[in-house]
Each structure stands twice: as C-alpha cells, then as structure tokens.
Nucleic acid binder design. Structure first.
Length: 199
DNA sequence: CAAGAGATCATCT
DNA sequence: GATGATCTCTTGA
C-alpha cells in the first residue's frame, strides 16, 4: 500500500515536487520506532538567483548540497535553536530544494508528544522547526539519501492519494530577500488543513 | 487575540 | 561581528 518515492521523483521541476509532496508521508525510523506524518505544507527554493534561498550567490560549505543531485536531505540549524528539513531537487548544478514546513501527525504520536513536550496534536508538527523536533531530525541527517533501501528518513506515497485542494502563498520569513523574491507564490499547502503552520 | 522580545549558534563577512 | 527558510512566552487590549 505504501511505496517509497524513487529518486526520479526528486529530479522533477522544484515547483512540481513542492506541490506533489502534499499528501505524501514523511517517515522517520529510529531503531524499531517509526514516526510518520502527512505532508501538508511545503516551500520551493529555486535557483541561484533566488535571494531567499541559501544557494543565492556562491557555493559554500553549507549550501553545496543544494547544488548537488536530487533526493538528498538538507538539514540546517536556524536561529541557533531549531532545525529545518529540505529535500534537494532537480539536476546537479542547479541549486534547488523543497522545505517541508508542516505535517499532520499519523503514527508514533506518543513519541512526538514526548519529543515536543506538547500534548495538543496541532502543536506537534505544524511548522518547520516543530516537525524536526517531533521526528528527532538534526544535522546527523544532513546530506543523507532519501531514496536508498536502508535509510532513516524517507517519503512514501499511498495508492489512494486522497482528495484535497492546494493553496499557494508567498513564502514565510523571507522578507530580507526583497519584495520580488519574498512575494513569489512558492509556498504550497493543503487547503483547510488544521496542521498548516499559517493561514 | 496580536504584538514584541528573547533564546542561541552555525555560517558567512 | 552580524544574522537568520523559528518558536515560545509575556504583555496588554
């Protein structure tokens, strides 16, 4: 019933990947423990001209993974406190990634509650920093593969995708990129889903 | 409810 | 030395 997304999926155009990831399942394995969330919100970071992207300007130690080939995780620390999770997209040499911004808790909910120190379901993974905490995602997963047989973090799809409408808006928290790049409608979310991070 | 401040560190200048 | 693809808590209407 569930199938791990193949590497090919991530080679598609970033805006397409960002939209198609909605409704798919992010799976985290820690030993025997499995934590699963349904992806309800994403953002695209697209090309070296995107001033909102970490890949803007030149290649550095941190962003080099975004310049690499598709299907690798990019995990970074923000504000010295929280991690953010991205999946690298498109061909090698074209820097791009999709930020996974929010999940609907599906499996391993008690573990998520413990890791987050929260009990309300809507507080577990309704934001990029929150979901990394809930799935115990940190820098140890940076630059790892999402498409191999044995991995600790991957994405699955169900045969029946379910029915939902996709909403789009400007990306969150990137005003520093200037009005043009900050206003690109590259944030996608499942409409009327209560686990989306912002209205 | 909204607005504002503080937390805290890897990364880049 | 400055800052950020965030979150939580406090304050006040």
């Amino acid at each position: 019933m569930f199938k791990k997304l193949p590497r090919k999926f991530y080679y598609q155009p970033t805006l397409k990947v960002a939209q198609q990831l909605l409704g798919k399942y992010l799976v985290r394995r820690i030993g025997q423990q499995k934590i699963v969330g349904r992806i309800v919100e994403t953002e695209a970071y697209l090309g070296h001209q995107d001033r909102a992207s970490h890949a803007f300007g030149k290649i550095t130690a941190r962003n080099e993974i975004m310049f690499g080939s598709a299907g690798f995780w990019y995990v970074y620390l923000i504000y010295g406190i929280f991690y953010c999770l991205n999946i690298v997209t498109q061909r090698k040499g074209f820097p791009s990634a999709v930020l996974i911004r929010a999940l609907e808790p599906i499996e391993g909910i008690e573990t998520m509650k413990r890791l987050r120190k929260k009990s309300d379901l809507r507080d577990l993974s309704s934001g990029p920093g929150k979901l990394c905490q809930a799935l115990k995602i940190d820098r140890s997963l940076n630059k790892t593969k999402a498409f191999v047989r044995n991995c600790y973090l991957w994405i699955e799809e169900k045969k029946e995708a379910g029915d939902f409408k996709i909403g789009a808006s400007k990306r969150i928290g990137v005003d520093y990129a200037g009005p043009y790049w900050a206003s690109r409608p590259w944030r996608f979310y499942i409409k009327d889903n209560q686990f989306v991070s912002k209205k």
